[in-house]
């Protein structure tokens, strides 16, 4: 929680105004979450490279550090030190702001994730709504990147992603309603608290719809149409290089982390697990990595859909399934 009684008392005794206390706590928290994000991204990219290597009869990074563990730090340093290439006809502001617009939503959606019992930065009453609202902003970042960089491939990629994300927003939101109906709350910590049986078991349809649309939301395979390297040469971030490119990569993996964390919180029992309560965060992490592994497994196995097939799947399959899920949940709750 942001302001506990002791802290307020401490502030009063030392003459620190309340707004300064709140601001400093928010700043500290933001830095902590940013550090966690940075670490998480390094771990996930390393994991992705190792998992993909394992799938593809390769070793992956092996030379920098033990089993290539320092490879990503070297890569990050390289990207930092690269020249900032700015396309001649690009829109200066839109082009520069796009990576931030991509990065921020995924980043601040982590603020409401309950990692363990009581371990959460800001436990909002409308946490679920907040996440749904925030994560849909990132599409603005993609569209900005596409239009700002004055590149035809980027425009096509960003249009694709706009269509895709708007379509999958709907089934994703609807698939959560079943969970909210059972838990009786939109607060993420109380959803986990009420989850003695995993909602993936109670809500199998909702879980599948949510998982598939999360893949589409985060532009992961088989829905990575906006960045298809075979057709659009990396789509919307075609013109980005160096640090800005790294920001896109950063944003992508944080979005992956946030979507997986939300899956764990809503459907896989959050911090619940055998053993004493203080093991909660560890169980959360184990589940998080399991979900991310499955997502990577899917990415490195399946081909990708075509744009019209993606739309068909979203509107004609997932949306009716999500509605059916709400209907069934409602009837069962009436009966019981």
């Amino acid at each position: 929680m942001l302001s506990s009684a002791q802290l307020i008392e401490f502030a009063n005794n030392n003459g620190i105004p309340l707004w300064a206390l709140n601001a400093s706590i928010a700043l500290v928290m933001a830095i902590v979450v940013f550090a966690i994000c940075g670490l998480g991204v390094i771990v996930f990219v390393y994991m992705e490279r190792k998992v993909s290597a394992d799938f593809q009869l390769r070793w992956g990074p092996m030379h920098v550090g033990w089993h290539g563990t320092l490879q990503l730090i070297a890569d990050a340093l390289k990207l930092f030190s690269k020249e900032d290439v700015f396309p001649r006809n690009a829109d200066p502001w839109v082009f520069r702001l796009a990576p931030i617009f991509m990065f921020l939503p995924a980043f601040i959606s982590l603020m409401v994730m309950p990692i363990g019992p009581g371990i959460v930065i800001q436990d909002l009453n409308v946490g679920l709504l907040y996440i749904l609202a925030i994560t849909s902003i990132s599409v603005a970042g993609i569209v900005m990147a596409g239009f700002g960089s004055y590149n035809k491939f980027a425009v096509i990629g960003s249009l694709r992603s706009a269509a895709q994300m708007v379509s999958y927003e709907v089934p994703r939101a609807l698939s959560i309603i079943g969970v909210v109906m059972i838990a009786g709350s939109g607060k993420l910590s109380s959803i986990v608290g009420a989850q003695h049986i995993w909602y993936a078991i109670l809500q199998p349809i909702g879980f599948v719809v949510f998982f598939v649309s999360s893949l589409a939301e985060t532009n992961r395979a088989p829905f990575d149409l906006p960045e298809t390297e075979a057709e659009l040469v990396n789509g919307y971030y075609n013109e980005y290089s160096g640090m800005r490119f790294m920001f896109f990569l950063f944003a992508e993996y944080i979005a992956l982390m946030s979507a997986s964390a939300l899956t764990v919180v809503l459907f896989l029992g959050g911090w619940h697990g055998p053993g004493p309560e203080f093991l909660g965060p560890i169980w959360f992490l184990v589940k998080l990595f399991a979900v991310i592994y499955v997502i990577m497994w899917i990415r490195w196995t399946l081909p990708r859909f075509r744009i019209d097939q993606v739309m068909d799947l979203g509107w004609k399959v997932l949306l009716p399934l999500a509605l059916l899920n709400i209907f069934i949940t409602g009837i069962i709750m009436l009966v019981i």
Binding site: S52, F55, L57, D224, L302, P303, R304
Partner: peptide, 16 residues
């Protein structure tokens, strides 16, 4: 063909 359809892994098997 797999790479063009978005499946990167089969390529490595075939190349192997």
């Amino acid at each position: 063909m797999g790479v063009e359809a978005g499946a990167l892994t089969p390529f490595l098997y075939f190349i192997d």
